[in-house]
Measured scan of single mutants.
Amino acid sequence: MGMPNRKYADGEVVMGRWPGSVLYYEVQVTSYDDASHLYTVKYKDGTELALKESDIRLQS
């Protein structure tokens, strides 16, 4: 078993793309699913969504 190939840690605050949009919002990573390679993130309004790594970026 190798290390999970994840870029962002639980609790890390990053920018997540809103689905169907080009806009990124501040989100907190809450979990990562090794099987689906999706991150569960929480937006400031409390919305929780699963995002692909390509829809997440570090805060500038």
Rank of each mutant, 00 (worst) to 15 (best):
48 E>Q: 11
50 A>I: 14
10 D>K: 05
51 L>D: 00
11 G>M: 05
13 V>G: 03
6 R>D: 02
4 P>N: 13
48 E>D: 05
38 L>P: 00
42 K>P: 00
28 Q>D: 02
46 G>M: 03
29 V>Y: 00
33 D>H: 05
52 K>V: 09
42 K>F: 07
31 S>V: 03
30 T>P: 00
38 L>H: 06
6 R>N: 04
8 Y>E: 01
15 M>I: 06
55 D>C: 06
5 N>W: 07
5 N>M: 11
60 S>P: 13
7 K>H: 06
48 E>M: 14
21 S>L: 04
2 G>Y: 04
59 Q>F: 15
60 S>Y: 11
1 M>S: 15
22 V>H: 14
35 A>M: 13
5 N>F: 10
53 E>G: 05
23 L>W: 12
19 P>I: 03
13 V>I: 15
20 G>D: 07
57 R>K: 13
57 R>E: 09
58 L>S: 15
43 Y>G: 08
58 L>Y: 13
15 M>G: 03
13 V>Y: 14
45 D>M: 03
35 A>G: 09
31 S>G: 14
36 S>E: 07
52 K>F: 11
23 L>H: 12
26 E>F: 08
51 L>C: 04
47 T>Y: 07
51 L>R: 01
32 Y>C: 02
43 Y>A: 13
28 Q>I: 15
33 D>K: 02
25 Y>I: 11
21 S>D: 06
34 D>Y: 11
54 S>W: 08
44 K>P: 11
53 E>D: 08
4 P>L: 12
12 E>N: 05
9 A>H: 11
52 K>Q: 11
49 L>T: 07
34 D>I: 09
59 Q>N: 13
30 T>S: 09
18 W>E: 04
11 G>E: 03
2 G>P: 15
35 A>L: 11
1 M>C: 15
28 Q>S: 09
54 S>R: 08
54 S>V: 10
40 T>F: 11
55 D>H: 07
16 G>R: 01
49 L>F: 15
38 L>Y: 11
29 V>L: 02
7 K>C: 06
25 Y>M: 10
39 Y>C: 01
16 G>L: 10
17 R>W: 03
55 D>N: 05
50 A>E: 13
20 G>C: 08
33 D>L: 04
22 V>A: 14
48 E>N: 07
1 M>Q: 15
31 S>Y: 08
51 L>A: 02
48 E>P: 04
60 S>A: 12
57 R>G: 07
41 V>I: 03
11 G>W: 05
14 V>S: 01
23 L>S: 09
51 L>V: 06
20 G>S: 05
19 P>W: 06
28 Q>V: 15
16 G>W: 04
50 A>S: 13
22 V>E: 14
12 E>C: 08
21 S>K: 07
59 Q>M: 15
17 R>A: 04
18 W>H: 07
36 S>A: 10
6 R>T: 03
21 S>T: 14
58 L>K: 15
31 S>D: 09
22 V>R: 13
31 S>W: 07
18 W>Q: 07
58 L>I: 13
29 V>D: 00
13 V>W: 15
31 S>P: 00
49 L>Q: 07
15 M>K: 04
47 T>Q: 09
27 V>S: 03
44 K>R: 11
40 T>Q: 09
50 A>F: 15
13 V>R: 10
23 L>A: 10
42 K>R: 14
50 A>W: 14
4 P>I: 12
13 V>F: 14
59 Q>G: 12
46 G>T: 04
20 G>N: 09
33 D>N: 09
51 L>I: 10
56 I>N: 01
16 G>P: 01
41 V>A: 05
41 V>N: 00
43 Y>K: 07
41 V>H: 01
12 E>S: 10
19 P>G: 06
8 Y>C: 02
27 V>A: 12
39 Y>G: 00
21 S>F: 04
15 M>C: 15
10 D>A: 06
49 L>G: 08
28 Q>G: 02
42 K>Q: 10
57 R>S: 08
5 N>D: 13
15 M>W: 15
27 V>N: 00
52 K>L: 12
45 D>I: 03
8 Y>F: 12
60 S>M: 12
44 K>T: 08
36 S>C: 08
18 W>D: 03
22 V>Q: 14
18 W>R: 11
43 Y>V: 07
5 N>T: 13
18 W>L: 10
52 K>Y: 12
8 Y>L: 03
5 N>S: 14
26 E>S: 09
17 R>N: 03
26 E>W: 11
7 K>W: 04
24 Y>N: 01
10 D>H: 05
51 L>Y: 02
31 S>C: 06
27 V>R: 00
9 A>M: 12
4 P>V: 12
53 E>Y: 05
38 L>F: 10
10 D>Q: 07
8 Y>M: 01
12 E>W: 06
37 H>P: 01
30 T>H: 08
17 R>M: 06
42 K>T: 10
50 A>H: 14
6 R>A: 04
55 D>K: 02
5 N>I: 15
25 Y>G: 04
29 V>C: 01
43 Y>I: 07
36 S>W: 06
16 G>T: 08
9 A>D: 07
45 D>G: 05
1 M>H: 14
50 A>M: 14
45 D>R: 02
44 K>E: 09
26 E>R: 09
6 R>V: 03
8 Y>W: 09
17 R>D: 00
17 R>F: 03
12 E>V: 08
38 L>I: 10
4 P>W: 07
41 V>K: 00
29 V>H: 00
26 E>L: 13
46 G>H: 05
36 S>V: 07
59 Q>W: 14
44 K>Y: 10
40 T>Y: 13
28 Q>K: 12
55 D>S: 05
30 T>Y: 08
5 N>C: 14
52 K>N: 10
13 V>Q: 07
41 V>E: 01
23 L>C: 14
12 E>T: 10
33 D>A: 03
16 G>V: 14
58 L>R: 15
31 S>Q: 07
14 V>M: 02
30 T>G: 04
21 S>H: 06
48 E>V: 14
32 Y>I: 00
21 S>R: 07
54 S>E: 14
38 L>D: 04
21 S>G: 11
60 S>D: 13
37 H>T: 09
4 P>D: 12
5 N>L: 12
54 S>T: 12
52 K>S: 12
37 H>E: 15
49 L>D: 03
2 G>C: 08
25 Y>S: 07
51 L>H: 01
28 Q>M: 14
34 D>S: 11
47 T>P: 05
28 Q>N: 05
22 V>F: 13
54 S>A: 11
57 R>Q: 11
54 S>N: 10
12 E>Q: 15
23 L>F: 14
